[in-house]
Amino acid sequence: MIGHIDAVVVDCADPAALVRFWSGVLGGQPRVRSDDWAYVDPPGSTRLAFQRVPEAKTGKNRLHLDIDVRDLEVATLAAEALGAHRVGEVQRDVAGAFQVMLDPEGNEWCLALAQP
């Protein structure tokens, strides 16, 4: 082993706004260190950090977060109330169901409901 994950870092235009959004999704206290860097330490999870970059997002993410939820529709509505947008319909397969979402800067992520 070389090391362990210290944080997942998201490039963005507005770190303070995104950390507030994601702390609403995951819990934890949003921390804004500067105009260029913010983070949240969700309870029981890895730090999620946001760093300002000059370029805009282009194309689809090569990495995304799957957020485990108990009720897909309730979680989707709560995420939308925070500023997320759903993409398409709920997808279902043998592993369960998921709803693709976009955060306020257009980063893809999923709400996931595992099969019992």
Results as ranks from 00 to 15, higher is better:
M1V: 13
I2S: 14
I2Y: 05
G3K: 11
H4Q: 14
H4C: 12
I5R: 11
I5Q: 15
D6A: 12
A7Q: 15
V8S: 12
V9C: 11
V10K: 02
D11G: 07
D11R: 00
C12P: 06
C12L: 05
P15S: 02
P15F: 04
P15L: 04
A17V: 07
A17Y: 11
V19W: 01
V19S: 05
R20N: 11
F21R: 00
W22G: 03
W22V: 02
G28P: 02
Q29H: 08
Q29C: 04
P30S: 06
R31E: 13
R31N: 13
R31T: 09
R31F: 03
V32I: 04
R33H: 15
R33K: 09
A38M: 02
A38S: 14
A38I: 09
Y39R: 06
Y39F: 12
Y39S: 14
V40G: 01
D41L: 09
D41S: 03
D41G: 03
P42L: 02
P43Y: 04
G44A: 02
G44Y: 04
S45F: 07
T46Q: 13
R47K: 00
L48I: 08
Q51K: 04
V53M: 10
A56V: 08
K57W: 05
T58G: 06
T58K: 14
G59H: 12
K60P: 11
K60Q: 15
N61H: 10
R62L: 11
R62C: 06
L63V: 13
H64C: 03
I67V: 15
V69I: 12
D71F: 01
E73Q: 12
V74M: 12
A75L: 06
A75H: 05
T76Q: 15
L77N: 15
A79C: 14
E80L: 08
A81T: 07
G83M: 00
G83P: 01
R86Q: 10
G88Y: 04
G88K: 03
G88C: 03
G88E: 03
E89G: 06
V90D: 09
R92L: 06
V94H: 13
V94R: 09
A95K: 11
A95D: 11
A95R: 13
F98N: 07
M101N: 08
L102D: 05
E105S: 01
N107T: 10
N107C: 10
E108F: 12
E108I: 12
W109R: 08
L113W: 08
A114N: 15
Q115N: 15
